[in-house]
């Protein structure tokens, strides 16, 4: 088999490949300097606490590639959890309450989708509004006392359990949804349509993509996935609380952008986002084990994001400079 040198080079210079190398190097370095980092307890803790935020990453990946954004995910998830909690308290079986909760999440997403797709409002503004709206509803519906008593103990025990030695159970929804979202995005027509919309909505529409409908459904999916995260939050914190997952949307958006997804839409890969998630989780865990507080962790993640964007920008310019020079040389030779 002949290996195409340019193909290899272009693969290696792709953002997700660089990110993969950086992540692996970081883990090797961190494991050598931080005792216990790769112990099963440390790994399961590190991933267990990000179960909810990392779910938000999936719909956000699709939305941002399609030139939209949904910053209401954490509020929608918390609201769905509040619905689940209130229904359970009212005596409904927990499983039924969860199904209703997922539908409510989908409906919240539908509201966002309706405003964006049908009314044509910008998604940042719409979801900024619903971020506040659904968080407010959490407090209105629940009052100030978190629900703790009728939550099934099995859910809590499950959330804190692991399989394969260290993988936390509450990562299962993410592990199931990653391949589904990945295949939909990269192997199915719907994925190509999302990229087409991100590349240029008008062109996409003239090529037969039903832009508005797709946009609408992306928001519905986002709401439903957010609701799953809400249920996970109930298990992890042993309660339904109106301030569940506050601010998690920003962490999820950070992962998406560090994963190489274009701010302008139309570009991004699932693998990139997975590597960026791994990198941030391991970075935070390393700092935690070294005794650094949350402020220092935030600082490090912020520097990482800005630094990597800067690096990408510079390398692009250098690349462009070389191409220009080659073109000029070729023109002179001709």
């Amino acid at each position: 088999m002949k290996i195409d040198a340019t193909a290899v080079r272009s693969y290696l210079t792709r953002w997700e490949s660089l990110l993969a190398i950086a992540t692996i190097l970081f883990i090797v370095y961190a494991a050598a300097t931080t005792p216990g980092l790769l112990s099963s307890a440390s790994l399961s803790n590190a991933f267990q606490v990000v179960a909810e935020k990392s779910l938000f990453v999936l719909p956000l990946l699709l939305l941002i590639i399609g030139r939209e954004i949904d910053i209401s995910v954490a509020s929608v998830g918390a609201f769905a959890a509040v619905v689940v909690g209130l229904l359970t308290q009212a005596g409904l079986p927990f499983a039924v309450a969860v199904i209703v909760g997922l539908l409510v999440g989908g409906l919240c997403g539908a509201l966002n989708g309706f405003c964006v797709a049908v009314l044509g409002m910008p998604s940042l503004v719409v979801t900024l509004g619903s971020l506040a709206l659904f968080r407010g509803l959490c407090y209105v519906a629940l009052g100030s006392t978190p629900i703790t008593s009728p939550i099934p103990p099995d859910l809590i025990t499950w959330s804190y359990g692991t399989f394969l030695g260290w993988v936390p159970n509450n990562l299962i929804p993410l592990l199931i949804l990653i391949p589904i979202f990945g295949i939909a995005l990269h192997r199915r027509p719907i994925g190509r349509q999302i990229f087409a919309i991100g590349g240029g909505p008008d062109v996409a529409r003239y090529s037969g993509v039903r832009v508005l409908r797709l946009r609408f459904w992306l928001f519905v999916v986002s709401g439903a996935v957010a609701a799953i995260a809400g249920v996970l939050a109930i298990g992890r914190t042993s309660q339904v609380t109106p301030d569940a997952m506050v601010g998690y949307e920003l962490d999820a958006i950070t992962v998406v952008f560090l994963g190489g997804v274009s701010f302008l839409g139309g570009a991004g890969r699932m693998t990139g986002v997975i590597w960026s998630l791994l990198l941030i989780v391991m970075l935070r865990q390393t700092l935690l084990l070294q005794g650094q507080g949350q402020y220092a962790q935030g600082l490090a993640v912020g520097l990482l994001l800005i630094g990597s964007l800067l690096l990408a920008n510079i390398s692009q310019r250098i690349g462009a400079w070389f191409t220009n020079r080659r073109l000029r040389a070729a023109a002179q030779a001709a």
Partner: peptide, 21 residues
């Protein structure tokens, strides 16, 4: 240790950290 948000969920990683230590 120093959580940066006053929520119970933000304290969980720090409990884990002290267990690890």
């Amino acid at each position: 240790t120093s959580p940066s948000e006053a929520t119970g969920a933000a304290q969980i990683p720090f409990v884990n950290q002290l267990v690890a230590q």
